[in-house]
Design a protein around this nucleic acid. Structure first.
Lengths: 343, 343
DNA sequence: TTATTTTACGCAAACGATACCGGCATAATT
DNA sequence: AATTATGCCGGTATCGTTTGCGTAAAATAA
């Protein structure tokens, strides 16, 4: 079964005109008589004519679509960010093709290949937790694909970046713990390669340093799969809670990690915040309803998506190569709740 | 700036061959000598040749892409369903274009227009809460677009449908309330037009009837915007909790409605389940961590997405028009937790 | 040697839309 | 009356790829 749309040729045949005349009539060219225009326009409307975007893409060498690569749609941060991207894309006449890496390097490479071969006009990407080699992205960028790095940014020269101040976010969260009387704060971070991980861990370390708390290297944990696997978090928590010197608070550096830790604590009957304080990075809109209500660092995901899309589309539509590259860094918000209450 | 990919023409020119020879060599045609094939293949590989899918689409009259229309990506049910759709699409060589209606009729119409004009090969759709007129969908289907109705299904003749047994889900949830000693159970449903709303309300009514509980019409509430607006739920809850005869339990028929009610209760210091029992339809994976842990009806969203995508792609690739239309109805799961504990 | 088949390739049309080039009427100008 | 201008429209190439058809050269058969 196939969906057969009416073409300019059909209109031409039906009205005894040439395709060029019909094309010009539809585009309201001055070279076409008003009567012919009316005839064509009426016939087109009656038969619900829509120009074939594929033919246009082929001719114009652009597809009016942008690709988005994220690790996972079913993640509040990314779905909100995609919402932002979509809203801008819609306004500007682009459509959005989404690809997921599932935090898997191979899948990221093939997804990028896929987007490029689907002739998107540009790509907004956030790298997977497994990605330490960026050549697939760098090569594509070098070959002229329009790209904006987003959230988990890469340090290419001359590329638009949109992210949040992860250093400050972690610094504030850690300081919040310290101010509330926590002494031995652990940090469960994402994969070590990621920009967000490095920045958050740095912020965490800096906060300890500035408050004269010695850093215990054992207190820093990394999740190679970004917490996508529950077992990953279980192993870490087993270690943390069975060590000689147990941490009294945990800074969880991603949505998944945060909820996994909460689930672990529930399963093990560890009470938050009594036995363990918890602050998590999360964009879920019901963290206030959790037991206990969760102190979170939230990111302006929708806004980040909008900005990234605006930068990308501006780049796509720019006549001359862009010289000035933006490094947009937005602020996060710390919502203080029960999970990190004063000791 | 534009991303210029290498074409078959470039290869032909470089090797002193014709485009047809190159094309056939790439497709490993028997008409091409082994030496030429090797030359072409090597050159193609070195220069990272990828066939232009747009040109192919134009020629083949198919785009190898499917459209998905949902009300909202940032909704656990739909993002899981999209995951299912994506996984099948990937396997079968299709890409997915997502459009959101945001529960808005106008936006749904324009999104459908958009998908159709983007020449997708088929569409999986779940109608918006505002949609009572289905002609935009029916017309498109009549004109030959491959379509699968999903979740919030429509009652067209001869169309694949994938949904859950909403009647039974609501029946079981209501019965669960009754068995736990609740007497006056209200139902906060989605927009009245929706198939899921009708079925869930019917299941709710049937459970009451079967347990000889008289139906109080005031106990059925509808959310025109599907709970997307918090105020909508506030108005309903204000009414329900200030009536003379106040319900002692609420069946919340969507994710958003459920969390909105929880938030309302928290704001108003209404204790769940002491003052008000709550069961909600939800696909969030942390409802067990809420305060109180939430009794939910969960849907096999991923599986639904997979099935819908399989049906659609089978239909797209079928040579002859499909005669046999599936009406797949999957089972939901009731997870009993604290929010609906025995009175 | 001649006739026939096979091998290996090129030519050109097609998909839908656009745009340059050109042409034929009729009208306006000299 | 001859020339120019203008209004209106058609022919055709183009984007990248596939494919049916045609054909030269080579290989085989007669």
């Amino acid at each position: 079964m196939k969906f057969e749309a009416i073409t300019i040729k059909d209109i031409a045949k039906a009205l005894g005109l040439s395709t060029s005349t019909v094309s010009r009539a539809l585009r309201d060219s001055y070279e076409i008589s008003p009567e012919t225009k009316v005839k064509v326009l009426e016939y087109a409307k009656e038969n619900n004519y829509r120009p074939n975007p594929i033919a246009l893409s082929l001719k114009e060498k652009r597809s009016s679509s942008i690709g988005v690569l994220v690790c996972e749609i079913a993640n509040s941060f990314f779905s909100q960010a995609i919402n932002g991207i979509e809203s801008v894309a819609q306004e500007m006449g682009y459509n959005v093709i989404i690809a997921q890496s599932k935090e898997d390097f191979e899948k990221e490479v093939s997804s990028i290949q896929y987007l490029a071969s689907r002739s998107v006009d540009g790509i907004i990407f956030s790298v997977s937790a497994e990605t330490s080699d960026f050549s697939h992205l760098q090569n594509l960028y070098a070959r002229g694909m329009n790209m904006v790095s987003f959230d988990r940014v890469v340090d290419f020269e001359d590329i638009h970046k949109v992210s949040v101040d992860n250093y400050k976010a972690a610094y504030e969260a850690t300081t919040h713990f310290i101010n509330n009387g926590y002494k031995d704060i652990a940090c469960v971070a994402n994969a070590a390669f990621l920009s967000i991980t490095k920045e958050r861990v740095e912020g965490y370390k800096a906060a300890l340093r500035d408050h004269n708390i010695p850093l215990n290297p054992n207190n820093i944990y990394y999740c190679l799969h970004g917490g996508l696997l529950y077992e990953e978090v279980v192993d870490i928590m087993d270690d943390a809670t069975n060590r000689k010197e147990k941490p009294d608070a945990i800074l969880a550096c991603s949505d998944k990690i945060t909820t996994s830790i909460m689930r672990y604590c529930q399963n093990k009957n560890l009470s938050i915040p009594k036995q363990l304080g918890l602050v998590g990075f999360s964009n879920l809109d019901l963290t206030d309803l959790l037991a206990p209500s969760l102190t979170v660092v939230s990111q302006p995901a929708y806004e980040m998506g909008r900005i990234a899309a605006e930068l990308l589309i501006k780049q796509i539509e720019s006549k001359r190569p862009i010289k000035q590259f933006e490094d947009v860094v937005l602020a996060t918000e710390l919502h203080q709740r029960a999970s990190s209450e004063k000791r």
